[in-house]
Structures are given as structure tokens and as C-alpha cells.
Design a binder for these strands. Structure first.
Length: 1031
RNA sequence: GGGCGGAUAGCUCAGCGGCUAGAGCGCUCGCCUUACACGCGAGAUGUCGCCGGUUCGAAUCCGGCUCUGCCCACCA
């Protein structure tokens, strides 16, 4: 290994690209130049088209992981490329307060480090502690984005809870409230009895629990509660219904027993007017029929029996207040919902349960104790029919890890089922993806009698890849109203006041009425909205009529801003603010608007909303994408928040598992940056990002640092290094030239050699490929095209080919420099640092003036224009001509390798006259790349090796100093070649001997096959002769 | 249960009706060849998951299986 760095004057650049020498310095240069600042006026004046992206705000719970790195890299690629293409670009950065997730991590830390629970703090004090955590992680995240090279408009950084975003949240809430799209509802929520919080569905972990199935007998009675015996069709008599349950304690809240209508026992029960009487409670409840009930299996032990049918008794206890399905059944049959639990999940008669009867023994028990108690009491009365082992999934709080309780509770809802919201979101899809002909809604196509509105579209929003439009649509088809209240402290507090707060107690009606008339004078109609028993009441009515103040919900438009005085007044009158905060997605849903200053009418909004594209992961289509579309359209007169939605692949580990902390298979982007460089990270991620839904990244431990990494990143690292060295070489050539190019020197296109034209043609083709890939979000295609252009075309062929001539040819120097410059620009969006570092040096070298090539100088490459190469540089004849010569070179190299010819040895190629003409037309290309001393149209005099090319036999001489053997190797090579040729010939012959092919296939293909076969046959012939000659 | 992917070289992936099925890594051989050994040249490696069908022709289109993953819903 040659470790000594060559420090000669010509080669002042180190031999390897060292990211750590450049990344920080370049970040500072960008920042000093204010290079990523978006100017809305440039768009509004019509100077430039706008191109904008909002970052999906990362949660401030933790540092960014590899998924973020991927997502943000792709966004930066889009932003940087469009910036270079002349768009006025805005990349809006920021972070999300992530309500429950952040509060949870902070609570955990406080318990671990200080032994204090949340409730040991005052609300403000606790929020202060969360704020500290947020500040810390927000800085970390910003730092990571900077390290990755993200070209965000940093000064516009937003946080979902900062003043600007908070104002938008309050305004949005007020408008929705006023428009009747926010309502108070009683619903079953996932209740965490420990933290006493409602959880979102995705905050519930399903854990398999070994429990029991209990079979409880309820005596059958008539409607008046008198015992009843029901004669069944099979001749038996029924005195009890036996319900099967895993949760006996909830029987206290039962309001019906349900049976499947096709159950043979149902008609008898119905006709007898059967009811059931709950032991102890003595509540008489109806027996009803509902399809939801599973019929018991005839043979419970048979294979493949539905586990429910296996355990079912045919009777289902219905507890609407404590089970989501029972809640649905209750709605269908208009049953009462009796809540028998306190918020801590203990049995209680203070939350809606009145007919306790003899069940007072259970009051105050925890749900676990109540279960044991109920089972014991039933057993004592002979009403426990059976108890069987049963393993089933139970939802657990991801915060406190206790089983969640389906709990009837008052919550705030956004009525997303309203057509103004979900309909708007559906119609936002462009027509093509909305109807997806022949695909998604079989039997529901236009014109077949089904409502065509099904497919109505008034938008142009487009998903990439296509298939995600379907996920988006089906989700909206099944959407339910969105519960937005969370019993947390960290978040946007709900701007609603009411007169009753359990902690404070009631204020007298008289006092209230007096107060109301006072604050009413201060309140202006457009600043306050009042809901009264689900309706809206105008302020005048409140004053005139004697309404029950306790049923008022008063929403104040801007309690933290303009309406502060009003808030002070009504609070002094005894009104109390709702203690809950909003679901974190409520503020995220406003992100594309709030970050740009909505509800103010700002230039930023005018210029950049709708944004150009949202880049995100598919798991978030429902939680976030949909809600942004609903809100943006609703609040901004139908504007979609983004034109395109690009859903990127998910990164899994080598075994196809999700990367996670608990599995220890996560890769930290910071480690990759330190180990390989930011550009290596970015290039590799782009290169991996195909259109599939998952991509795998084998994870390995780096031996030196002990950090997780992946061999995949070597690709990016090597790529950067290769580019660095190709650039070093280019600049050395320009510097050492004998006839130097002068800056601005006009180049006559007649002075370009074939290989120069070839290089420009390859460049032009690659620009097309790259632009198309960007348009369709095919990042892997982009990265691969750049790899091929830089490594294969530029380094392997172009640089090698021009080595002998470039010093004497200014025109060639101009092409060389232009090619490198264009490669750097095309690559800059993927690899910003290394290209910027090289650009700093390349700028100092003279550039020629090549007609049709536009590479205007710019101090920073990040602000340089996208390369322009005129379309007529695309030259098919040149490309195929050079391709042919490359094949010839490969053929010669194969012989050289087989004959073990010293790399530096110049040998002689003997060809026929037509081939000689072709080679000459290549202007030294073949000679240079194949290591030839001469190409001649004459037979060799001494020892020679032959090979076939284009169905002809050519020879190579002067391979060896002394005519050493080597014929063994050559025989081997020829034999292998003959074998391959025979195989190929057989394939083609078979094809041609098929009459179907020659008759039906397109003529040009048949013709092509015939020519191919003829070619291969003469090649085979030549190879056989050569082999014979050796023997 | 509903929806959506994947199965092609030892590994990670391209190719999605017609080239003798490709790339990178890994492997073998030879090279410190006037930038790069994080490199250069050459080479080996495939019943394109299985079974049918359509077609002159299928890795590619259709149907059915088998594995495998993701999202959503549900879990008396």
C-alpha cells in the first residue's frame, strides 16, 4: 500500500476523498451564502416557478433514524435538482411535538431519574420539563439534517407548538367548531386506567394473554322479571341462558343477551317473550337477535373450527359501555349503555350506573378483584356453568402496559365523515387514479347504474407509485369520525370552556347568568361559538332565553392571542377550560398551511401552497396525508396541500425485519456519516430506492467502532472516491496540457474526435434519463444512471481513451472539462458535498466555449444552473460505432488476459482492410484501450494468437518476448467459445425452424435472427479453424 | 378477515412479451498499466418459487398454488 500522499504542485488534492475535510466547511459556505432561502416574491412576480416541499416533521422524541435519512435525502434530491433547474424552491423544515409519545418518554425519564410522577408536578412545571426535552432533541434533529446536507430554508424552521402553528390550530378548531364539524360525543375509547388517558388505536399493543372463558348462567324471566321456562324444539326446557365471556365483571353493565337469528332456539325464546335477569343486579334485560353472534360449532373439537365457534354458547352478553362490538349492537337495538366503572377501572356507581341492586358488594373493587368476585358469587349460586382455558389477544396501553379498558367517555370529534372533509379528500385524487379503469371497483364502474359520483374528481393530486391511491381511497371509504381529544398535558389545549369542572365544583346558575351577560358584551359574534346540546346558539339567544348554562360549550377563537381579555373575564366568572389537549395529528394536519403563516394571508402561502410534492412512508397515508388534504381543501377554498404524493420504500434489515431499537438492528445515520460520509449515505439510499414497497439492508457491526452499519454503504463511499479521483485526474490533465485551453476559447465542433462526440452523446442521453427519473420519482434509476455515466462511460472509457491526446488538444480539454462539470451538476442533488468540494477546484480551471453546451459559472454548485446539452449532441451512429470498437477492445483484452500478456506490453493487431478503416476512424481509441503498438491489415510473420470478431478471424502478435507456450490457455478459451457458440446457434436454429415464428413474428425480427445465426455460424467456423491450427 | 408487495447469480437488487437474462457486492485469475488497490483487466456462477394456460415466442401476460413481508380492521 502506498500511503505517501503525492504532494507535488500539480496534485495538491489528496488521493482519497475524505468527507470530514469538507462537510462542515461546505455547510458553513452554504449557510453564509444564504443559498437555501426561498423568496416568495420571485414566484409572485412571475420571475420563477415555485417548487416547494414541507418536511414531514419528525417527532422530537428521539434522534432521526435511517428511515428519516432516506425520506429527507429524497426530499433534498428533489429540492436541489429543482433549485438548479431554475425553480424558486422552498423546503420548509420543522419538528412535531408528538403529544403522547413525547410526554411518555419524558414521564419515563422523570420516574427513572427523579422518582417523580407526572402528577407530582404542577401542569405548567411539567410542561416546562417536556419543553426542555423538546429543545434538546430539536437541536439534535436540526444538527442531523444539516449533517446530511439537507438544503432546508433554515430560518423558517417551525415547531407544531410554536406561536405560529398554535395560532393556526386555534383558528382551525374554531372554524370547524363553528361550522358544526367538531362535536362532543360519547364513544368508547381505548382507556388507559393507570394514566387515565384515551389512547389512539395505534397506541394500543395487542398482547396474547392466557386467560379463561367463563360460562355464566342468567335465569330466564318474563318482561316483569317472573321466572320463565322456555320449551325448545328439541323437547328440552331452558331455564337459563348461558353466556360465554372472558370478562365476567362487565356483566354488571349488560343490557341485553343476543342470539343469532338462525339459532334454532331463537324462535322459541322470541315467542315466549324471554328476558334474562342479571343475578345480584336484578336488572331484567331483553334477549335479542343479532347476526353478529357466532353459532356454536356442532363439533367443537373438529379441525379448523373457528375458535369463536368452538367456545361459543350461542348467547352473547351485550355490554355496550364496555365493549366496542357491544356498543355497535347496542346502537342497532337501541340499548342503554351502562357504565359500571370509574376512570381507574374500579367498579363504581358514580359514572352512570344507577340500578345497583344487590351488587353493592362489588363496588370499589378493582376490575381484577371484581372478576374474581363475580365468578365466585356465580359459583356459589350454581350459576357458573363452566370455566375453560383460553388464550386471546388483549389490547395493552403502550404507555403503562396494563390492559386497556373500552371506556365510555366524552370526547371531542371531528366529523370527518362529512362530505366537506372526506368527500373533498376523495375528490382531490386525479381522475385517472380515481377510477383506475378495469381495476379497483369492479362492478362499480361508470355507466353501469352505480352512482358516477363514486369517481368524481375535481383535483389533480397524484400518488407515486400508483397503487397507493387505492390505499388512500379504500381508507376513506371506511372512515369514521376522528376523536381529537387527548387526556394529556403536552399539546395544544382545546379552546373550549364550560361551566362545570369536577375539581372546582359548580357555580350557581344565578352567578353564571350574571357573568354571562357581562362577558357577552365583550364577546363579538365572530370570536365566540357556542354549542348547546349539539346545536349552535347565537349570542342573542343566549341572552334572551333561559338556557341551561351547564350544557354550554363555548369555543373562543384565539384565547392565547386576540381574545385573551375575554378569557380572563369568563374564567373569573367561573368558566373552566377543557383540560384536554388535541391529538397531535390535528396540528400536523395543518402543517403545509401553518408553517407558511395561515390563517394570515402571507406571500409564502400564495407562492408555495399547494406544495409540489409530499414525500413520506405509506404507514402515514391515513394518519397524516388524508388529514392534510381534508384540512387544506377545507380551509383554503379547495386547494390541495400538494400536487404529488410520493410514497417511498421502507428499509428493513437483511432478514426482512423492521429496524427497531428493541431488535438492535437499527442503523444510526450519524454513524454512517462518520464512517462513510454523508454523500455515501445519500447515494446508497437513492440507489436502493426502487418502486417496491420494502428494501432490505443487511446490517453488520463495524468492528472498530462497534456501531451498526451495512456493507451497502461501501458502494456510495467508493463512488465518491472514484469521482474525486476522476476529477483530480481531469484537473491534472488540464493543468499539465502542452497546448492549453484558454478560458472562453471558442471550440470548433470539427475539432472534436469521435470519442469526444461519444462522451457528449452519452451525457445528453443521461440528462434525459435523469430528468425522466426525477419526474416519476425513480431515485434508483437516477443514481444508477449517474453511476454508469461517471464510472463506466467517463472513467473506464473516456478518460482512458483521451490520455494520449488530451494534452495536445484544447478542444478535447474543453469536452473533458465540460463533461466533468456536467457530471458534477447532475450528481449534486444526490451527493452535494463531494460535488461542491470538487467544484471549488474545477472553477479555477479554464473552460472552453462549446456551442450547444451551457454550463454557466457559479460560485457554489448548489446554485449553479442545471447543465444544458443541446439535443443534437445525441448521436446514435457515434454511439453504436464506439460500442463496436469497445467490443473489439474487449475481444483483444480477453486474449491478453488468457495469454497473460503483461499489461504494459504493446502488441500488434492484424485485421482486414474494412476493420482497419473502422479502427482508424476511431482515432486511436482501439489502440489506446487495447494496448496496441499497431493495427495492420497484414498477416503476422511470427507467432500469433487468433480470435474472432464480427464473424471474422483476426490475429494478435508480439504477445510474448520469447514465443512461450500459452497455447493451452488459448485452446481452453477457444473450446469454451465454441461451446457457447454452439449453444447460441442451437437456440436460434430452433427458433427459425418453427414455422409459427417465421410466419407470424414481425419480419424485421426474423431477418435479424437470420443475420445473427449467419454471423454466429461463421464465428464458430473461424473459432474451429483456430483451434485446429493449434493442434 | 380486507388491502398491498416480494420470490431472478452465494448476498442486495434491475429487467416486466422478442438481444446468448444484467448490475453492485462476494468469489477465481492476472495487474501498484502516466487519477483512483475505496483501483484496473479478465473470468466463473441462474430448471428467473411451483403447476397450468394464452402466444410463433413468457422471467415478463392470465389463472391456481406455496412460501414471505407490510398496512388496515378484528379478536365472546
Amino acid at each position: 500500500m502506498n500511503q505517501t500522499t503525492d504532494q507535488s504542485a500539480e496534485m495538491s488534492l489528496p488521493k482519497t476523498y475524505r468527507p470530514e475535510d469538507h462537510e462542515q466547511r461546505i455547510t458553513t459556505r452554504w449557510s453564509d451564502a444564504d443559498a437555501f432561502r426561498a423568496d416568495p416574491d420571485a414566484v409572485l412576480n412571475g420571475d420563477r416557478q415555485g417548487y416547494s416541499v414541507v418536511i414531514p416533521p419528525p417527532n422530537v422524541t428521539a434522534a432521526l433514524h435511517l428511515g428519516h435519512a432516506l425520506n429527507n435525502t429524497l426530499q433534498d434530491v428533489l429540492i436541489r435538482s429543482h433549485r438548479m433547474m431554475g425553480f424558486e424552491t422552498l423546503w420548509m423544515p420543522g419538528a412535531d411535538h408528538a403529544g403522547i409519545a413525547t410526554q411518555t418518554v419524558v414521564e419515563k425519564r422523570l420516574i427513572a431519574e427523579e422518582g417523580r410522577k407526572r402528577t407530582d408536578f404542577e401542569r405548567d412545571e411539567f410542561i416546562g420539563r417536556v419543553q426542555e426535552w423538546k429543545d434538546e432533541y430539536e437541536e439534535t434533529i436540526k444538527g442531523q439534517l444539516l449533517e446530511m446536507g439537507c438544503s432546508c430554508d433554515w430560518e423558517r424552521w417551525r415547531f407544531t407548538m410554536d406561536d405560529v402553528c398554535a395560532k393556526a390550530v386555534r383558528e382551525a378548531f374554531f372554524q370547524l367548531f363553528k361550522d358544526g364539524l367538531i362535536y362532543r360525543g360519547k364513544r368508547l375509547v381505548n382507556w388507559d386506567p393507570v394514566t387515565q388517558t384515551a389512547l389512539a388505536d395505534d397506541e394500543v399493543d395487542n398482547i396474547e394473554i392466557d386467560g379463561f372463558f367463563y360460562y355464566l348462567r342468567y335465569p330466564i324471566v318474563d318482561a316483569d322479571g317472573e321466572p320463565l321456562r322456555v320449551a325448545l324444539p328439541d323437547g328440552s326446557t331452558l331455564e337459563h341462558v348461558t353466556v360465554a365471556t372472558t370478562r365476567p365483571e362487565t356483566y354488571l353493565g349488560d343490557t341485553a343477551v343476543a342470539v343469532n337469528p338462525s339459532d334454532p332456539r331463537w324462535p322459541a325464546l322470541r315467542d315466549a317473550g324471554a328476558h334474562a335477569k342479571l343475578p345480584f343486579v336484578n336488572r331484567v334485560i331483553p334477549v335479542i337477535a343479532d347476526d353478529y353472534v357466532v353459532l356454536p360449532a356442532k363439533d367443537p373439537d373438529a379441525e379448523g373450527v373457528d375458535p369463536k365457534a368452538k367456545y361459543a354458547s350461542g348467547f352473547l352478553k351485550v355490554t355496550p359501555a364496555h365493549d366496542p362490538n357491544d356498543w355497535e349492537i347496542g346502537n342497532r337495538h337501541d340499548l342503554a349503555a351502562i357504565n359500571v366503572m370509574a376512570p381507574d377501572a374500579s367498579i363504581s356507581d358514580e359514572h352512570g350506573w344507577e340500578d345497583v341492586g344487590d351488587a353493592t358488594v362489588f363496588l370499589g373493587l378493582s376490575r381484577e378483584d371484581a372478576r374474581a368476585g363475580v365468578v365466585q358469587r356465580f359459583d356459589e349460586l350454581g350459576l357458573l356453568a363452566d370455566k375453560r382455558d383460553y388464550s386471546h389477544g388483549v389490547g395493552h396501553s403502550y404507555r403503562s402496559h396494563v390492559p386497556i379498558e373500552p371506556y365510555l367517555s366524552d370526547q371531542w370529534y371531528v366529523k370527518v365523515t362529512d362530505d366537506r372533509l372526506t368527500g373533498g379528500a376523495q375528490r382531490a385524487l386525479n381522475g385517472r387514479q380515481r377510477s383506475h379503469e378495469g381495476g379497483w371497483y369492479k362492478g362499480c364502474e361508470r355507466g353501469d347504474g352505480n352512482p358516477a359520483e363514486r369517481f368524481d374528481s375535481d383535483g389533480t393530486m397524484t400518488f407515486y407509485p400508483d397503487r397507493y391511491a387505492k390505499s388512500y381511497e379504500t381508507w376513506h371509504d371506511n372512515i369514521r369520525d376522528w376523536c381529537i381529544s387527548r387526556q394529556l398535558w403536552w399539546g395544544h389545549r382545546i379552546p373550549v370552556w364550560r361551566t362545570y369542572d369536577p375539581a372546582i365544583g359548580r357555580v350557581s346558575e344565578a352567578e353564571l347568568a350574571e357573568g354571562v351577560s357581562r362577558w357577552m358584551k365583550l364577546a363579538r359574534a365572530e370570536r365566540v361559538a357556542i354549542q348547546y346540546r349539539g346545536e349552535f346558539v347565537p349570542l342573542e339567544r343566549v341572552e334572551k332565553e333561559n338556557l341551561d348554562m351547564g350544557a354550554f360549550f363555548v369555543c373562543i377563537r384565539d384565547p392565547e392571542g386576540e381574545d385573551r381579555e375575554l378569557v380572563e373575564m369568563i374564567e373569573s366568572e367561573g368558566w373552566v377550560r377543557d383540560p384536554d389537549v388535541l391529538d397531535t395529528w390535528f396540528s400536523s394536519a395543518l402543517w403545509p398551511m401553518s408553517t407558511m403563516g395561515w390563517p394570515e394571508d402571507t406571500p409564502l402561502l400564495d407562492a408555495f401552497n399547494p406544495t409540489s410534492v409530499l414525500t413520506t412512508a405509506r404507514e402515514i397515508i391515513t394518519l397524516w396525508v388524508s388529514r392534510m388534504v381534508m384540512f387544506n381543501r377545507y380551509f383554503k377554498g379547495g386547494d390541495v396541500p400538494f400536487d404529488d404524493v410520493y410514497i417511498h420504500a421502507m428499509i428493513q434489515d437483511g432478514e426482512g425485519r423492521k429496524m427497531s431499537k428493541s431488535l438492535g438492528n437499527g442503523v444510526d445515520p450519524r454513524d454512517i456519516i462518520h464512517l462513510h460520509g454523508a454523500d455515501a449515505l445519500r447515494f446508497t439510499l437513492c440507489q436502493m430506492t426502487t418502486q417496491t414497497q420494502d428494501v432490505r439492508m443487511p446490517v453488520e457491526r463495524d468492528e472498530q467502532s462497534g456501531k451498526n452499519t451495512s456493507p451497502k454503504f461501501d458502494l456510495g463511499k467508493r463512488f465518491c472516491n472514484k469521482l474525486w479521483n476522476a476529477s483530480r485526474f481531469t484537473m491534472m490533465m488540464l493543468d499539465e496540457a502542452e497546448t492549453k485551453l484558454t478560458n472562453g476559447q471558442a471550440i470548433d465542433s470539427d475539432d472534436l474526435s469521435p470519442v469526444d462526440r461519444w462522451m457528449l452523446s452519452r451525457l445528453r442521453s443521461t440528462i434525459d434519463t435523469v430528468e425522466e427519473a426525477l419526474r416519476t420519482y425513480q431515485f434508483s434509476v437516477y443514481a444508477q444512471a449517474m453511476y454508469d455515466l461517471m464510472w463506466r462511460d467517463f472513467c473506464d472509457w473516456y478518460l482512458e481513451a483521451i490520455k494520449p491526446t488530451v494534452r495536445q488538444r484544447p478542444a478535447q480539454q474543453a469536452v473533458l472539462r465540460a463533461a466533468l462539470d456536467a457530471i458534477l451538476r447532475l450528481l449534486h442533488p444526490i451527493a452535494p458535498f463531494v460535488t461542491e468540494a470538487i467544484h471549488e477546484h474545477l472553477r479555477a480551471t479554464p473552460a472552453g466555449d462549446l456551442p450547444g453546451v451551457g454550463l454557466p459559472d457559479s460560485e457554489l454548485i448548489c446554485q449553479a444552473p442545471w447543465p444544458e446539452v443541446a439535443g443534437d449532441f445525441r448521436d446514435e451512429p457515434i454511439e453504436s460505432g464506439i460500442d463496436r470498437l469497445r467490443d473489439l477492445v474487449a475481444a483483444v483484452r480477453e486474449v491478453r488476459a488468457q495469454q497473460q500478456v503483461q499489461p504494459r506490453r504493446r502488441i500488434t493487431l492484424h485485421v482486414d482492410q474494412p476493420m482497419l478503416d473502422e479502427v482508424k476512424a476511431g482515432d486511436g481509441f482501439v489502440e489506446t484501450l487495447a494496448g496496441l503498438a499497431a493495427v495492420v491489415a497484414s498477416d503476422p510473420e511470427g507467432a500469433a494468437s487468433s480470435f474472432t470478431f464480427d464473424a471474422r478471424e483476426f490475429r494478435l502478435s508480439d504477445l510474448q518476448d520469447e514465443s512461450a507456450g500459452g497455447s493451452d490457455a488459448e485452446r481452453e478459451r477457444l473450446s469454451r467459445q465454441i461451446e457457447e457458440l454452439e449453444g447460441s446457434i442451437a437456440t436460434l436454429q430452433k427458433r427459425l425452424s418453427n414455422p409459427g415464428y417465421t410466419e407470424k413474428a414481425p419480419a424485421h425480427l426474423v431477418e435479424q435472427t437470420r443475420n445473427q445465426l449467419a454471423g454466429l455460424e461463421s464465428e464458430l467456423d473461424a473459432a474451429r479453424k483456430s483451434l485446429e491450427a493449434l493442434q
